[in-house]
């Protein structure tokens, strides 16, 4: 029953419309009534502000001088798009996204394999993996910031090749690494749980058959396991990638954007909330939203996943 009810099939819908009975009309009305509050709320907080952002983005508008608001057309977009800072932060954000998702995918997969195979202490392992997932990102940021700190941390002491006074937040490379460590630590559990669900889908029979045919462990992994959990991997990558692209909390807490570690979200936040430049800040908001759409589109296109289907139907 599951698949017929859920998959929104346009052909079937049309056929249904043609022979719509009173009962299905009532069902339709009820269905729409039930989803109405959810839709209304979701749109109130996203669509409406987004439209307002588009509107504000064509003004030069500062909250500290509201009377000086003037229409400037596309000037804010031109300013943003021709500013090297915008491209530097975009590049930095994409870099964070690619590295963290790639690392999380590998570690998350290993964790998922272990959780899938492990027979002892299952509960303990699953409980502990949920702790990073549940912990507040700001707390994770602080924990790692202090861990990397050269006056009160332990990382310098534990790494034999580093001088104890090494300042992790003193240059781009090490600062961004510290930020990524916090991000990866906090979100790998989410990745590994999604992958674990995918692993559970791979049939043991197929694995056995491959084993009988003499396939090595490595061959089985690549020929049987991974292809069969493709959709789970895609969902995990898509959601984590978009999440990573929006990175904000860790950067705010750990470097506040110093040493070129700013992300697009952080840049937008600074214009809007810290500098009250609602005009150009709104233009950045619109650009940020568009870039998220582009990334989502790219991932969907590259991996040819039907998003709704993947999430709804596995």
């Amino acid at each position: 029953m599951t698949s017929t009810v859920v998959a929104p099939d346009s052909k079937k819908d049309r056929r249904k419309t043609a022979q719509m009975s009173d009962r299905s009309k009532a069902e339709e009305r009820l269905g729409q009534k039930l989803v109405l509050p959810a839709i209304a709320l979701m749109l109130l907080v996203t669509a409406f502000p987004m439209l307002r952002a588009i509107y504000l983005s064509v003004f030069n508008y500062s909250l500290t001088a509201p009377d000086d608001r003037e229409f400037v057309g596309a000037q804010n977009y031109i300013t943003a798009l021709t500013d090297p800072l915008f491209w530097e932060t975009t590049l930095n954000t994409v870099f964070i996204m690619v590295v963290t998702v790639a690392v999380e995918l590998v570690i998350g997969f290993i964790f998922a394999m272990v959780m899938h195979r492990v027979i002892f202490a299952r509960g303990v392992i699953r409980t502990s993996i949920l702790i990073p997932y549940g912990i507040i990102t700001v707390v994770s940021g602080f924990a790692w910031q202090f861990a990397f700190s050269n006056s009160n941390g332990f990382v310098n002491e534990w790494l034999p090749f580093l001088d104890n006074s090494f300042n992790w937040f003193g240059e781009y490379g090490s600062a961004i690494a510290a930020i990524m460590v916090s991000e990866i630590w906090k979100t790998t559990p989410f990745m590994s749980l999604l992958l674990l669900a995918g692993l559970a889908q791979v049939s043991e029979d197929m694995l056995e058959a491959a084993k009988v045919d003499g396939a090595t462990w490595w061959q089985r992994l690549w020929k049987v396991v991974l292809p069969n959990m493709r959709s789970a991997i895609m969902v995990a990558v898509l959601f984590r990638a978009l999440d990573a692209y929006r990175i904000f909390d860790n950067i705010f807490v750990m470097t506040a954007g110093a040493q070129g570690t700013e992300s697009v979200s952080f840049l937008t936040y600074r214009q809007v909330i810290e500098q009250f430049q609602l005009g150009i800040g709104s233009a950045l908001s619109v650009l940020l939203f568009l870039s998220v759409l582009v990334i989502a589109g790219l991932i969907v296109k590259i991996f040819r996943v039907d998003l709704a289907a993947a999430r709804q139907e596995g």
């Binding site: 050269n150 006056s151 006074s165 300042n167 110093a258 040493q259």
Partner: peptide
């Protein structure tokens, strides 16, 4: 000081 780039009113007190 080792933490020059992140130094504030508190870090150098010690």
């Amino acid at each position: 000081q080792a933490d020059l780039t992140v130094s504030n009113e508190g870090t150098s007190l010690g």
